[in-house]
């Protein structure tokens, strides 16, 4: 096979962009479902009953910071500074895992304390499906970054020459992060905003 491509871009990178375009539609449909059902069916427990905005703001902030940390990791890899790269990778992974920890805490709080399960009402159904799907995306991202980090512990496995692998993972990571910002705004903030019919 020839190394050259028509556009000069790596095919895997284009693949990732196309995949993310597709994934956009996936989340759009889930968010659409959530919005269509907003305020329908049994109203309690509803968004304003369960959400704790300060807590979720913290986890949102952590996820946002993980994206920044990802940028640093990539920047150091391109400069072949593997040590710094590893540090920023660990920090990204930890922050991703922290976000997941928050989500698990939040889910169990809603489930056991507020008695909101996916079976309870339409809000439970749409909320868990949407945020759960996002959580699965984050989990895949954490595992993916973990594999890259693990390989980097072995000599010469990861270097600026192979930065595409990290580039793809980073693209994915930023995408998942952006999706969360949308979810946080649409589900959490609009859901508890008083001026908004819920």
């Amino acid at each position: 096979m020839s190394d050259e491509t028509t556009t000069g871009l790596n095919s895997r990178k284009i693949l990732m962009w196309v995949f993310l375009g597709s994934d956009c539609m996936f989340f759009a449909s889930l968010i659409g479902t959530y919005l269509i059902y907003k305020g329908m069916g049994a109203s309690h427990p509803g968004p304003s009953d369960v959400f704790d905005i300060p807590t979720t703001s913290v986890s949102t902030f952590v996820l946002l910071m993980s994206s920044m940390s990802m940028v640093f990791a990539y920047a150091y890899l391109v400069r072949d500074n593997i040590k710094a790269f590893r540090i920023w990778m660990v920090s990204t992974i930890i922050m991703g895992a922290t976000f997941l920890g928050f989500q698990i805490f939040e889910f169990s709080e809603f489930y056991f304390h507020d008695h909101l399960s996916p079976q309870t009402n339409l809000f439970g159904t749409t909320f868990y499906a949407l945020t759960g799907t996002h959580g699965i995306h984050v989990t895949i991202g954490v595992v993916w970054l973990g594999i890259i980090f693990y390989s980097s512990l072995f000599r010469n496995s990861v270097s600026s020459k192979t930065n595409l692998d990290l580039d793809l993972a980073a693209l994915y990571w930023h995408f998942v992060d952006i999706v969360w910002i949308v979810i946080f705004a649409v589900v959490y903030l609009f859901g508890t905003f008083r001026g908004f019919p819920s």
Binding site: I36, Y37, Q119, A129
Partner: peptide, 14 residues
């Protein structure tokens, strides 16, 4: 499979 309510009209689904 898990008794969600997306299309459960008795839970108010449309």
């Amino acid at each position: 499979t898990f008794d969600f309510n997306f299309f459960n009209t008795s839970a108010g689904a449309n």
